[in-house]
Design a protein around this nucleic acid. Sequence first.
DNA 1: TACTTCGGCGCC
DNA 2: AAAGGGCGCCGAAGTA
Length: 460
Amino acid sequence: MEPINNKGYKLLHQGCLALSQVEMNGMKIDVDYTQRAIQATAKRIDKLEDELKKDEVFKTWRKRYGSRLNINSREQLGEVLFNILKYPCPERTKTGRPKTDEAILERVDIGFVAKFLKVMKLKKAKSTYLEGILRETTDGFLHPFFHLNMARTFRSSSSDPNFQNIPVRDPIIKKLVRRMFIARPNHRIVEVDYNGAEICCAACYHKDPVMIKYIKDDTKDLHRDMAMQCYKLKLSQVNKEIRYCGKNMFVFPQFYGDYYLMNAKSLWEAMVRLKLKTNDGTPLIKHIKAKGIKGLGSLYPKDKPKAGTFVKHLQEVENDFWGRRFKVYNEWKKEWYDEYLENGYFETLTGFRIEAVMRRNQVINTPVQGSAFHWLLWSLIEINKVLRKHKMKSLIIGQIHDSIVSDVHKKEVKNYLEIVQQVMTQDIRKHWKWIIVPLAIEAEVAPIGGSWYEKKEIEL
DNA sequence: TACTTCGGCGCC
DNA sequence: AAAGGGCGCCGAAGTA
């Protein structure tokens, strides 16, 4: 990759300097809390493991492995469940071992496995987060690294520790871990993020009028609409959980280059596993069957989807998605890839030529993912400049691809929010005239001296 | 003991 | 026609 204009060059130069400032600022860690949390979590793990050891399944496990038994080994558990106890093994890894991830193990409907998964979650929280972060903490402060030279898409990455994958989805683990991150005295943690950054950024490349309409019109909601179509629901039947599935099991995978077979699989599994219900309380699986879907259908790529299966339905949704709904977007993908094949490179709107051997999906995703991050990077640089120019006490302490985390002095909160709003939604569009969609941000604020866990969304 | 590979899982 | 984008960190297991 190389810059093709001065804006590109300056972005990385200043970005590097601004991020080193962010690294130096660092964030406060509640060390006492963390030590207590580690102890408490260790205790919970011990207790659950004791219970596991009393189970019949564990006795089978011991018989098979004897002293080599390792309660942390999913591979051993896979052997016990699928080869000895003869539970059906739905999938294998590329090296031929039985797959033993969460989705697969949940299908083995016995208490032992449910408890095993619960313990694994706690161990992940303890080792990677509680202990991993504490290990990197000195004098109560943590200074994660932010790199601009690691990601192939010219996003950033973070390490030692990785600040960009702190748990947020599982409410229990979220609280356990995010409680570690606290504001400096008289400060509040403030996190601001772009709404749908990658979708908006993609729109600047493909300029699909339907997508632009979705972005501009507040009453329209793509994820909701696709959830409705995938699960054959009416507007009144959709809820937050179902919308989440539409977003993360259809829309985003499709944008990343996935296809109907995988969508059908994960959307179907979600119905069963999360026991999804329509807003009026009907189990989704029952609803979909009433709508004429007999079953999931074959997941073998070579089989032709059969009428009346969920797979066939998703194939139709996909065809509609690209063939009718986002026709212009679809044409852009083809042209963009063809041009890459011809030239051997492509150029991002943020000012870089990227010359590398890439697969089709990478060629389509890289400019979007990279440029969306460049919006954030440019914003971070400008916000940092303003904070310093006005000698404000507030500090930027981190960045997560499309969001900025700051430790904001209690008297500067209003001012800070005005600055980020101005930079992220107005100034950036003067800097890059090719941004053809309105940009919006969301802000969350934690109490004075409180933790990252306690952040709450506020009106801007 | 040190290192690599794999599978898994956390995030956007 | 083909078919899931980008990271970093952990422990298990195998190898040197």
